[in-house]
Design a protein around this nucleic acid. Structure first.
Length: 415
RNA sequence: GUGGGCGUAGCUCAGCUGGUAGAGCACCCGGUUGUGGUCCGGGAUGUCGCGGGUUCGAGCCCCGUCGCUCACCCCA
């Protein structure tokens, strides 16, 4: 029996794991700069939180959840997305009692039992933020700007931002009547008809050309916005313009989760395959109340770490440089090793990245190790260095070595 | 859940009309005393995904099975 990882999970190991770590850090950074605070939540929750929060009509709930019964007979589900859990925590612990909005960020694994393919995994990673309790369009723009900054920090260029407004309940009710009437006249197959019954908007998600053609003159939700919703959307666009963030209005955009209202957005990368959405989010003004909390509005996003990493790779962005050692130490003999252990520890405590050729390797092999580690400098410590206190610090890039007093080597010198 | 492609050394792959496995990269050792990258020499490595069948003989053919992968669906 040879063990394998479960189907469809993503795993990261060197050197790709270094890039993964960088992606996560850079996507989080703009949120921290904007005052969002970490929320660390469980990866499993009461199943009903998701069926009510995400929506029964979604594929996520109807066929993609990892659900099981725990030993107490409770129905538990591995979280398929982050927002519902945040709402639960905010309501349960009264985080919304202080100043609004509540601004939080979070990151971790999510689970959906889908058939895997490029950029789609059963366990995948996201960075998310939520701003709860403020319906000012400026916060919509802030959330979008934070996501956009994360991608730009990484050096990504070949992506676009799609935005639309799904309006408030009144907007959607008016549109739904006309859309259902329109769809009823179309010649659709059984499966599509069934799918659309629960949420007619999903018809716009169809990728088949004949269907897309049929929808050319379909009524668009964005044309049914109430005065308030329309005004809100106008302000969001103005703020994005002021921020210099380019966007495309996409009135046919469909979000996968039912709780979205008003502003909705998606970041789409040009070089990825079928799974090209690297992040998305929107407003969810009725969610909190529907989960038993106060009637507070909210907006947030989820950014896919796995897909963002794929996007960086597609754009040939190297994210592995940061973790290469500053110094690679090669001790020769037991006395040198005794000295090196403390010498290295001091440098590390000073903030330098230091690796060492332990294991009494031959000098030549150890030098190869230094080379492969990508270290900036190599330092051999043997009998003569111990006796004189002076070593040859070799710059691995230029090949030039210079005499340095060992006691003078510190992290600043190596950086 | 549906469909296509693919499963041979750690990685990428070759293996002609069936005759009991190869390359490159990576790895280890060496090229006369303590300094890497290039070059040269040497070395280790596989139940050819798994099970069954056909055959004197199967990595190659047939059946099944598992897995990976890409796409549909859907989405991060």
């Amino acid at each position: 029996m040879k063990f394998q990882a479960p189907k469809g999970v993503s795993e990261y190991f060197p050197d790709r794991s270094i890039a993964f770590e960088t992606v996560r850090r850079e996507l989080i950074r703009p949120a921290k700069l904007a005052g969002y605070k970490l929320l660390e939540l469980p990866i499993f929750e009461d199943t009903e939180l998701f069926t009510r929060g995400v929506g029964e009509s979604t594929d996520v709930v109807s066929k993609e959840m990892y659900t099981f019964e725990d030993r107490g007979g409770r129905s538990i589900t591995l979280r398929p997305e982050g927002t519902a859990g945040v709402m639960r925590a905010v309501i349960e612990h009264g985080l919304d009692r202080g100043q609004l909005p509540v601004k939080v960020w979070y990151s971790g694994p999510y689970f959906r039992a889908e058939r895997p393919q490029a950029g789609r995994y059963r366990q995948f990673y996201q960075v998310g933020i939520e701003a709860i309790g403020l319906d000012d369009p400026a916060i919509d723009a802030e959330v979008i700007a934070i996501a956009s900054a994360g991608y730009r920090n990484l050096g990504l260029r070949k992506f676009r931002l799609d935005i639309t407004s799904l309006g408030d309940a009144a907007s959607r009710a008016a549109h739904r009547i006309d859309l259902v009437t329109f769809i009823a006249k179309l010649d659709l197959d059984e499966a599509t008809r069934e799918r659309v019954k629960l949420n007619p908007l999903r018809i716009f998600d169809d990728k088949r050309d004949p269907i897309i053609a049929m929808l050319r003159n379909a009524p668009l939700l964005i044309d049914y916005l109430t005065k308030e919703s329309a005004a809100h959307f106008v302000k969001v666009k103005e703020y994005l313009d002021a921020l210099g963030i380019a966007y495309t209005i996409n009135p046919r955009m469909v979000r996968g989760l039912d709780y979205y209202t008003g502003t909705a957005f998606e970041f789409v990368h040009e070089l990825l395959g079928a799974q090209s959405g690297i992040g998305g989010g929107g407003r969810y003004d009725g969610l909190m109340e529907s989960l038993g909390g106060k009637n507070l509005s909210g907006i947030g996003f989820g950014l896919g770490i796995d897909r963002t990493l794929l996007a960086c790779e597609a754009e040939a962005i190297d994210l592995t440089k940061t973790s290469r050692p500053d110094l690679y130490v090669i001790p020769l003999g037991e006395n040198a090793k005794n000295f090196a252990i403390k010498f290295i520890d001091d440098l590390r405590n000073g903030g330098a990245i230091v690796d060492c050729a332990y294991g009494d390797r031959a000098l030549k092999g150890a030098m190869k190790g230094a080379d492969k580690s990508g270290a900036k400098y190599a330092l051999v410590i043997g009998g003569s260095e111990l006796a004189s206190g002076i070593g040859e610090l070799k710059n691995m890039e230029t090949g030039v070595a210079s005499s340095v007093t060992l006691s003078a080597i510190n992290s600043a010198l190596l950086k």
